[in-house]
Amino acid sequence: MANYGPYFVQTRDGTRRVSISTEQKLTCAMRMLAYDITADFYDDYLDIAKSTAIEILDHFTKAIWNVDKRHYGQCYYLVDGIYPKWGSFVQAIRNPRTPQRQHFTRMQEAYRKDAERAFGILQARWAIIRGPTRGWSKENLQYIMMTCIILHNMIVKDEHDEDAADPFNPNDIPTRPKKAGIYARPKIDTDVNRNPQ
């Protein structure tokens, strides 16, 4: 992260003391996202003040976009009929009559369910999404949400790469009984030479 944002590089302050380390900053940001621990907790745990913890999370959520190197543009939201008819809300068509509209409605409902399941997975992994917003601004909430999505995708990609590097072998399952083998007994020389010369 220090390669993508100068904020995360450890420096010295005005009194020539070493500032908070990169690892402390990353630990603080990741724990705030994963466990939704209040910012003042880090004063005791990592010796980081509440305002500094909030600042770290703010910098982290903005720097993660540079790490991922993807651009996320305008968003559209797949919603059901209870939402207002806004341009960014895509609702299913009530009583579709043509085959094209029926297909659109089926696909829209399927994707909306997929999005709801994905959001449930994000809520399970990142506690900051589960809880109340605690006074974050709309801009910060957007950065926090996108950071959780980007980190989730990075974790999934890393797990996928790990699985690809080490393919599944059913013989590696420890609970599966292995075939018994008969081994030849090793031959040991038991002759003792009592008169060495």
Score class of each variant (00 low, 15 high):
Lys50Phe: 04
Thr61Asp: 00
Ile64Lys: 04
Ile64Glu: 02
Asn66Phe: 13
Val67Gln: 00
Arg70Tyr: 03
Tyr72Ile: 15
Tyr72Gln: 09
Gly73Ile: 10
Gln74Phe: 12
Gln74Pro: 03
Gln74Thr: 14
Tyr77Gly: 03
Val79Cys: 04
Ile82Cys: 13
Lys85Gln: 11
Trp86Phe: 08
Phe89Leu: 08
Val90Thr: 07
Arg94Phe: 04
Arg94Gln: 14
Asn95Trp: 09
Pro96Trp: 09
Phe104Val: 08
Phe104Ile: 12
Thr105Leu: 02
Thr105Glu: 00
Thr105Met: 04
Arg106His: 14
Met107Trp: 03
Tyr111Thr: 06
Tyr111Ile: 06
Tyr111Ala: 05
Arg112Ile: 02
Asp114Gln: 14
Ala115Tyr: 02
Ala115Gln: 02
Glu116Ala: 11
Glu116Ser: 03
Phe119Thr: 03
Phe119Lys: 12
Gly120Asp: 03
Leu122Cys: 00
Gln123Glu: 12
Ala124His: 15
Ala124Glu: 13
Arg125Cys: 08
Pro132Gly: 08
Arg134Tyr: 06
Gly135Ser: 05
Trp136Cys: 05
Asn140Arg: 13
Ile144Phe: 09
Met146Cys: 01
Met146Tyr: 03
Ile150Asp: 02
Val156Cys: 05
Asp161Asn: 15
Phe168Leu: 14
Phe168Val: 14
Pro170Trp: 12
Pro170Val: 11
Asn171Val: 09
Asp172Leu: 14
Pro177Glu: 12
Pro177Val: 10
Ile188Glu: 14
